[in-house]
Design a protein around this nucleic acid. Structure first.
Lengths: 150, 150
DNA sequence: TTACGTGCAAATAATTTGCAGTCCC
DNA sequence: GGGACTGCAAATTATTTGCACGTAA
C-alpha cells in the first residue's frame, strides 16, 4: 500500500541495532515486543536483504529466537504497511520482502531464485509511458530475469 | 520457461478461429481436443488478453463449454511451456496469462486488478544494466502500477 | 488399440485468521 | 489492568496431482 518513502528511514540511526530497531518500531506505532525486536534485528541488522517469510522464520529459529511462522508473516505485513519493507513478487509463488524501500529494481537469478538489487543509475527509462486518463503512477516494478550463460 | 518467440506466432493465420487454433495446437504437439480447442478459441479469438485461470474457467462455463478448472490450469501451463502464452505475476497471488508473447510491458490498475499492455515504444531503457558475470538476460518484466488520481 | 487427455477429488503450498493465553505500557 | 501481541491450529486461496475413465490418432 504505502508507496511513499518510509518515515522509518528518516530516523537517525545510531548504529546500535537494539536502539535503531526500537526507534523504528516506535515510529510506526508498533510495540517493540521481543519477537518484533528480534525480527527487526535480523532484517535490518546487516544491510539490504531480500527474504521470504519462510527464510526469516528459518533464520530466527537458528538464532534461537522463539517465534511462530504466523507472527513472522504478521510482522512482515505490518512492517510493509508501515513502509519499512517493500514486497517484491517475482514468480507468482513466493513473496520476497526487501529491506530497501527506496526506488530501485532487481535482478532475479532464475537458477537459484535469488533477488539482487540493480545498481541504481542503470535503469532509468528513456521515456515515461503515457498513463491512462485519471491514473497516476504508484510505482514501477522491474525485474530483470537472468539465466546462466551456456 | 520458454523465452524465445513462440513458434505459434509464426504460423499463418487464416482468420478462421477453428483452423488457427487447430494449427497452433498441432504445432506444439498438443492434441486438439474439444476443451483445448474451446479454450484456445476463447484465449486467442479476440485479440490480446490477460486472464487468470479462474477467469478463463468462468468464461468457458458461460460459453457452455464443459471443462474442469484443473484442465484449464493444465492447458494454460502447457500453452505457456509451448511458448504460446506468457505468465505475468503481479501481486504475488493471482497469476495472469498473456496471449501476447512478444516483448512488451504492462500497466497494472491497482484499483481493479486489471492488466493493460503498455504501447511498445514507450518503455525502452536508457541503458542496459550490468549483468553479473556468467549470466545473461532471459527477460525483462516491468509492471507500472497505477492508482486512481485523487 | 493405446497413449494422451480429462474430470474429480484429494494433496500441496503459501498465507491468513480466530481465539485463548501472554506481555507491554 | 486492558488492550495489543503471540502462538497454535484451523481456514483460505491458488494451484497441482493421482487415478479411473474417455477419446483422438
Amino acid at each position: 500500500m504505502a508507496v511513499t518513502q518510509s518515515s522509518g528511514s528518516q530516523l537517525q540511526l545510531t548504529g546500535c541495532p537494539w536502539h535503531d530497531v526500537n526507534e523504528m518500531l516506535q515510529s510506526v506505532g508498533l510495540r517493540p515486543t521481543r519477537q518484533r525486536m528480534a525480527l527487526g534485528w535480523l532484517l535490518f541488522g546487516k544491510g539490504a536483504r531480500h527474504l521470504t517469510a519462510e527464510m526469516l522464520y528459518e533464520e530466527a529459529s537458528q538464532a534461537k529466537v522463539p517465534v511462530s511462522l504466523a507472527t513472522v508473516y504478521n510482522t512482515l505485513n505490518q512492517l510493509t504497511d508501515a513502509g519499512l519493507l517493500r514486497q517484491v513478487s517475482v514468480d507468482g509463488t513466493k513473496t520476497y520482502f526487501d529491506t530497501n524501500v527506496t526506488a530501485h529494481q532487481h535482478f532475479y537469478l532464475e537458477s537459484n531464485h535469488e533477488l539482487i538489487d540493480i545498481p541504481d543509475s542503470h535503469v532509468a527509462l528513456r521515456s515515461i509511458p503515457d498513463v491512462p486518463e485519471g491514473y497516476e503512477i504508484a510505482r514501477i516494478d522491474m525485474v530483470v530475469r537472468l539465466r546462466k550463460k551456456v
